[in-house]
Design a protein around this nucleic acid. Structure first.
Length: 450
RNA sequence: GCGGUAUUGGUGAAGUGGUUAACACGGCUGACUGUGACUCAGUUAUGCAUCGGUUCGAAUCCGAUAUACCGCCCCA
């Protein structure tokens, strides 16, 4: 049997429903924030990522899916969303638009050649936003508020926002030099990973779990001491805007991100979930004020974030939150025997044309089997088609919950069902008391657990 | 990229070298040729991830491969 490639997964069944629900929610959420949907290619010239994400980052140096196309061009399956969106911003001259800032959002598959683990795949889906054209910390706060709002809508609890400032390019460079100088004499004490980090990404040394108790770690220079006045001001204003939005946050001095392009604000949104390990970072992002010019566009500030579907969905699973509605069928049409298949099929079509979610028997099941199937599909009503119906044009409609039966003339079936289904729905609304905005009440109660 | 654990029908699984791979759930059919969710009776894998080896004999032991999961690195 041919298996799926390592680190990929198929979407179907309940998972498909959840994805569909999540994407619908993202669509409405981004509409209300008034963001513009963009879609960029799944593969790009390799050089875009090498320059955009950074040559020394792990993502580019050892995790990209690279290939040569038939024209001998170097291509890479996108490992993240920002580089492509920035390229598109420049190539389509969005910087010349009058309606600045340009606020964009995207979702789609990303690819990284990694060792798969739970909630971590080689092909994975990200949702993200990128905003161009304003250096205002107000926009940083808006961008941070998006995942926070999303998680609240989804019902995720225990969310924590972590923020930090890397400062502008200059202060970041100064700090980097200071760090290198500080750790130089202690290099032999550091763990092997940190020795690696020393040459590749010294900021990450501070984040090391193994070496965190070493004296030289405690004495290390602080990033905040190297921030310029304007960076400090930016960061302070960001905090004020977050407070204005009622978003709780903590400042984490050790929060640096792995991608080279970040300046000023960086942030992560974490969920406090047992046994989730490093996967509890559900969302991460920050400001990139030089990426556009770095990719040959005009100097344009930007800020954005990305979050992974898989982590969100597995976080929801751990919290026992079920997304999406049951695939409830309104009407299940049953032929009493095979000779009525035509009539049954025609009635099915008529009902579908009138907007009812309608199913019927395709397997020639017996009556008992059809009743069972109707239950599996959560059918609200059953219609039986047999000799009497054909002769008298009066159909038997059965409420599948109360088992009540009605004899309805064929001309009134649509009207009858409309009325009955409306009754069902309104009686359901009365019972739902969870107060959740997105909640759809179904039999068996509310889908959003308290 | 490094280290570790696992892989038996549609599902949950028992089974650690010896005749037809247990049990349960689910599916289908019939008893019940116009009304089901109870009951009963049938039926449901040419098969123990794949390939190779050891053996008279392998789901069981060994090796390789594949995939999943766990820890690290990194990241969403």
């Amino acid at each position: 049997m041919i298996q799926k490639p390592k680190g990929t997964y198929d979407v179907f069944g309940d998972y498909g429903k959840q994805i569909k629900y999540l994407e619908n929610l993202l669509n409405t959420l981004m509409d209300t924030y008034h963001y513009e949907y963009v879609r960029t290619p799944i593969f790009e010239s390799s050089s875009l990522f090498h320059r955009g994400v950074g040559e020394t980052t792990d993502i580019v140096s050892k995790e990209t899916y690279d290939f040569k196309d038939r024209g001998d061009r170097d291509m890479t399956l996108r490992p993240e969303g920002t580089a492509g969106v920035v390229r598109s911003f420049i190539e389509n001259k969005m910087y010349a638009r009058a309606d600045m800032p340009v606020k964009t959002w995207y979702y789609g598959p990303m690819f990284r050649y990694e060792r798969p683990q739970a909630g971590r795949f080689r092909e994975f889906y990200q949702f993200g936003v990128e905003v161009f054209g304003t250096p205002s910390p107000m926009m940083d706060a808006e961008v941070i508020s998006i995942p926070v709002t999303l998680f609240r809508l989804l019902g995720l609890k225990g969310i924590q926002v972590k923020i930090n400032s890397l400062g502008d390019q200059e202060s970041r460079e100064l700090y980097r030099t200071a760090l290198l100088k500080h750790f130089q004499p202690y290099l032999s004490e550091l763990c092997s990973d940190c020795k690696e980090r020393y040459s590749k990404n010294p900021l990450r040394i501070l984040d090391c779990k193994k070496d965190k108790d070493l004296q030289c770690m405690k004495d290390a220079p602080k990033l905040s001491d190297y921030l310029s006045e304007s960076s400090k001001k930016h960061f302070e204003q960001l905090k004020q805007y977050l407070e204005a939005l009622g978003i709780d946050y903590v400042v984490d001095e050790h929060l640096v991100r792995g991608l080279d392009y970040y300046t000023e604000t960086v942030f992560e949104v974490e969920a406090d979930i047992q046994g989730f390990g490093s996967n509890n970072v559900l969302c991460a992002g920050g400001r990139y004020n030089h990426l556009v010019e770095h990719l040959d566009g005009p100097q344009t500030p930007g800020v954005g974030f990305a979050l992974g579907y898989e982590r969100i969905l597995s976080a929801l699973e751990k919290e026992e939150i079920t997304l999406g509605e049951e695939n409830k069928v309104d009407v299940y049409v049953i032929p009493m025997s095979e000779e009525f298949n035509g009539k049954t099929f025609a009635l099915t079509q008529t009902l579908r044309m009138n907007g009812f979610i309608t199913e019927t028997d395709y397997l020639g099941r017996n009556l008992k089997g059809n009743f069972k199937q109707a239950d599996r599909l959560l059918a609200s009503f059953l219609i039986l088609v047999g000799e009497d119906e054909e002769k008298e044009h009066i159909y038997t409609i059965k409420n599948n919950q109360t088992k009540e039966e009605y004899q309805v003339d064929q001309d009134y079936i649509v009207m009858f069902l409309d009325e009955k289904l409306q009754e069902l729905e309104s009686s359901c609304d009365d019972h739902c008391q969870c107060g959740h905005h997105e909640c759809h009440c179904k039999e068996g109660g509310c889908h959003h657990h308290e």
